[in-house]
Design a binder for these strands. Sequence first.
RNA 1: GGACGCGUAGCUCAGCGGGAGAGCACGCCCUUCACACGGGCGGGGUCGUAGGUUCAAUCCCUACCGCGUCCACCA
Length: 881
Amino acid sequence: MLEKTFDPKTAEPRLYEAWEQSGLFSPRDDASAAPFSIVIPPPNVTGSLHIGHALNNTLQDVLTRFHRMKGDAALWLPGMDHAGIATQMVVERQLAAEGNVGRRDMGREAFVERVWAWKAESGGTITRQLRRLGASCDWSRERFTLDEGLSAAVRKVFVTLYKQGLIYRDKRLVNWDPQFQTAISDLEVEQREVDGNYWHFAYPLEDGSGEIVVATTRPETMLGDTAVAVHPDDERYKALVGKNVRLPVTGRLVPIVADEYADPEKGSGAVKITPAHDFNDFQVGKRHGLEAINILTPDAKLNDSVPEALRGMDRFAARKAIVAQAEEEGWLREIEKTRHMVPHGDRSGVVIEPYLTDQWYVDAHTLSLPAIKAVEEGATVFEPRHWEKTYFEWLRNIEPWCISRQLWWGHRIPAWFDADGNIYVEETEQAARAAAGGKEISQDEDVLDTWFSSGLWPFSTLGWPEETADLKRFYPTSVLVTGFDIIFFWVARMMMLGLHFMGEVPFRKVFINALVRDASGAKMSKSKGNVMDPLELVDEFGADALRFTLTAMSGQGRDIKLQKQRIEGYRNFGTKLWNAARFCQMNECVRDPSFDPAGAKQTVNRWIRGEALETSLEVTAALEACAFDDAANALYRFVWNVFCDWYLELAKPILSGDDEAAKAETRHTAAWTLDVALKLLHPVMPFITEELWDKTAEFGPKPDGLLIAAAWPALPDSYADPAAEAEIEWLTGLIGEVRAVRSEMNVPPSARPLLTLSGANDDSRARLSRHRDLIVSLGRLGDVQEAQAAPQGAVPFVAGEATAALAIAQFVDLAGERARLDKEIAGHDAEIDRNTRKLDNPDFLARAKEAVVEETREKLQEAQGAKAKLQAALARLASLE
RNA sequence: GGACGCGUAGCUCAGCGGGAGAGCACGCCCUUCACACGGGCGGGGUCGUAGGUUCAAUCCCUACCGCGUCCACCA
């Protein structure tokens, strides 16, 4: 006998173990099977499972399990990202906490060794956590962005792009993170709104004839000013162009130049130019041949190009010092409060400085063209579609991608320099040496942006540059499931690099999943303390409940506001399913492999067979379309509202009756339907379904193998049975009405009133006699009879073409009954009115589709018929008074 | 400043051209032999506002109001 509830705590690890042992996570080896592949968005090796991962990976697992059951060669390829900055940060912090020497004192080699040691020990927590979620990844194919194969792929890609002129070295301003002391890409810069000031400074003209006022939010940059710009058409300043101003503090002379960048509308119309520390000023400087004076050290302190008193001062201290000096010396004209956006490093959180350095760049513009075209032409389709606009928007305005990082943890750039500054870019040091012709060379100290290696993920993980069988079979991958926050970082880069190196898109479809937020819609973050730990939720409700919740709420695109209540509700759903199985067990509803539902004779069995067909079609279509919520809702409805609420209830009289043939058929049908439900539910709720699949063997024939590998239901269309459907609809409608009347009239549960049916046609008479027992038991009636007219004092209601009446005179008060009838009639009146108006409108008759007109007529008739019956009842009621 | 998305029952959301729906919450009833993590019944909505298109608009178009997100913007 099954327990009353499913116990996820003990069952889940056991079931996962069984799956993993079975080898079924690997794609089947059948050459005729259609390939289906997904590469996981590789979580950071430092990471642990958060709710966003839970959603993202649940959806991937749903798809993988679905396709596996459909018989496809389904591959879900897992792996992790080395996460350059994030990981280096974790280990550096750990070193600090342990009171160890910092990485610089340790030296590069020792530090990198230390990171690897950390990875071996505590990295990859997340892959264990994915198992708890039920992820059916092929762990035998697990990859890491820094493993040997992927590193070879990275080197090959770098060298190839360099030789094609698509990677180059350039000296220009980069976004410099003073904490990590590395360049970062535009995408890693986060604009944050902060309070600040515009300080208006007066720069005196060299010739003493006056001053020119400029404003800045960063006073310290004036130490690097090399010009003041005014608009060429600005009458106020025309005469000053070509003159010099003497910068306060440094006393340096800089020219006043005419440049259209200066906006006469802003501030005084004159703007200070600091080419080495501002992206716009850098361009102005180039146009006018201005010197770019770098005033900062890599950790954002003032360097030796500033007056001695200021050297070594932190940038923010320097800002104060400059302002203080301006105030004291009288060239501070105004302080204007403002709120403005300031760039911060997304990892470090410190203010980013534009900084002049040599870095490596990818010609992203050239690579973007095929990537744009592929999506325009539909070779890759986004789902929901509107994300394509976001993708295009970014790619069409793409800037060169800075890929070098001044870090130690990552792929070392395969470039070597000789003493003369010549560059040798090769896949190996030997090759570089050979190219250098024996000259002394040393490798570039920098590593590559983490996203450079993740950009190769869809093909590097499949074995590229080797021409492996996997690569051939599984590239392009079928679908990528990811969050919109990394469309630029990752999706676009994979598109560019995949197309360039494979000549084919990396994935046919990109499914953008929602962002999980807390119940009030706020982004979950540790600092807000509103994070929901998926593992705690799994502990509390089981993995299936969490998975079902995330699947059901993953309506395309939108934010998911996760409430615990919801998860609890779907845990209850699992219990409902469990108890349905328990009921089947108690009633000896055993699986019979030779049973063919096509031969079912009982109406309920023919009906549930059709419902199973319909649900299987709905779920299949929904999963094909990544409409996960539709799939979940269809399953929920089928299991609870159809199978449990009606089918099992309707089956009870048969199962406890004497008609042995009907009983046997119903037992088999119930078991068959439960099996269909288990299969359809398995992708979303793998644990409980697998457990039931196995447990049902305790009271019936053992199923053939594990449910994870069972064939996806492909039921014949002939299972649909409109006649049975109509009959059950009639039956459940009638029972529903009886219950409603009882409830409204406060008929006590113990009362067993008589139900009569008058004015019934042959169909209804036949149905009545076939389902008499059901109507009696589910309606808690004394009996059901046909009658000429409703008995005295019985409460009537409409049952199709007939009038039904419940003999509960003793519970009825006339006023209440009159009110009930009035209300019903009013409802029909509204219907009659609406449809009459339509049909009286010649334009409607002329222009609406014939089917719509016909439907309107039918509705009108139906409402009129129902109204007539109720009016008759009302008249009878009046005659009693 | 540019772009995208969203405003439907108390809450969270589905529906997106011809009958306003689900789950939860709420109210009443039920220790009915699978399940109280349950069963039955019910109340609750001018589908953001104003125009337009249409025989017909929650659904399409326009404007506006409100909310959210991304990109750009450190004179």
